[in-house]
Amino acid sequence: MANETLKAEIIEYAKSIGIDKIGFAAANPFAEMKSRLKMQQDDDYQSGFEKGTIEERTEPELHLDDAESIIAIAVAYPSRMKSRPTNKKGNRRGNFCRASWGHDYHIVLNEKLEKLEAYIASRVTGFRSRSMVDTGELSDRAVAERAGIGFSGKNCSIITPEFGSYVYLGEMITNIPFPSDEPVDDGCGDCTLCIEACPTGALVAPGRLNAQNCIAFVTQTKGFMPDEYREKVGNQLYGFDTCQLVCPKNKGIDTHHHPELEPDPELVKPELLPLLSISNREFKQSFGKMAGSWRGKKPIQRNAIIALAHYKETSAVDRLIELMKEDPRPVIRGTAAWAIGKIGREDGRQAILDCQQQEVDEEVLEEMAKGLAYFSHR
């Protein structure tokens, strides 16, 4: 009974610090998730960004030896910006996914969890906890599902009744045996819109994702982007939203509860050409507070070059030629050469031929050949 009262008090306090939804679950091992992760591993569907072993990702007691329960939290984020900058010829823009809008959600949620920990510690002698947000070992989605935050959709997102899938998730393992909340019933029904809309077939089955084929993952890689994804990425600089945008449960959902999560239009839809010249310091100053900056500027610049090629932006060719000639990074030189061919401005052909004579990197030379092939096929 005492823990029922404490639970109610925690729920009220959570609301006061901007936690939009909170749920409580037992800290038993996640047996079903363990088998699913094993299947992902066997099928080579993992992204490689996952932290920890399968056991560490599914057994809370490995992170808190006297774990009794887990508190799951959700914080809602916007799905629309209040003013969108114009994307037009001569001034093309890229796109960061909605999960990277505003201040880095890892920081925002960790701050809320720290406040929640301090609140509980002030009320319970001997309280122990371990909190995680996204980059921790436990599966946020499995915890949120068990704690009644929402159901796990066919698009592999937690879908809440109130905020759709536009929520950030975090959790706190505790040594307090709180009463558990009931899971939310699955709401997808026969709908398969997300699976049908996935441009790469990464959603191989309801609730099963081949992460290595997902555009969101591809935009975060650091090497040359495989050819088969370049058209499908379009103007995406980081992440991908289509599997959420087509979801009927997200229709009409647009939550603006947190000023720190509001997007800066010039950052989440930035001009592409200036990104090609941005210094490390400028990148950190402008984009460093966004979740989408975590891999550094090179993937963003590579994706910006691919986006300019997607638009066939002829005004970018001069800068692309400079990158092909001078950039010390093979991925940028090679992608620029490919993009010059894709865009097709006639002087680009000779520029590639000239640079071929000086280039020694085999992968860059392959990209130059791809660029030249576009001119041959016209």
Rank of each mutant, 00 (worst) to 15 (best):
E137G: 01
I321M: 01
N175S: 10
E359F: 01
S122I: 01
A67W: 04
I149C: 12
S16E: 15
Q285E: 15
N250R: 02
S157I: 04
P274H: 07
E4V: 10
Q358H: 14
N280H: 13
P248T: 06
V75A: 11
D185G: 15
Q41R: 11
Q285Y: 02
H256A: 05
V246I: 15
C194N: 03
E145W: 01
P248Q: 09
M324P: 02
Q46G: 01
Y238P: 01
H310G: 04
A369E: 13
G348D: 02
L320P: 00
Q212I: 13
M33C: 07
E362P: 06
E260C: 14
E59H: 08
F240A: 09
L64C: 09
A25I: 03
T192A: 12
E231K: 14
K298W: 02
F49G: 08
C198Q: 10
S157F: 14
W338G: 02
K289W: 04
G170Q: 08
N110H: 15
K34G: 09
K370I: 02
E61S: 10
K115I: 04
V167R: 09
A147I: 00
K51V: 11
A26T: 09
Y45E: 11
M33S: 14
E68C: 13
K112W: 05
E59W: 00
Q285A: 13
T58H: 04
E68M: 12
K21L: 14
I120L: 03
A118H: 02
A74Q: 06
V124K: 11
T5G: 03
G334M: 04
R130E: 12
P299Q: 07
T255D: 06
C97E: 07
R93V: 04
L209F: 04
P183I: 00
R230P: 09
D66V: 05
C156K: 09
D264I: 13
A373H: 13
A74V: 01
V268M: 08
C194K: 07
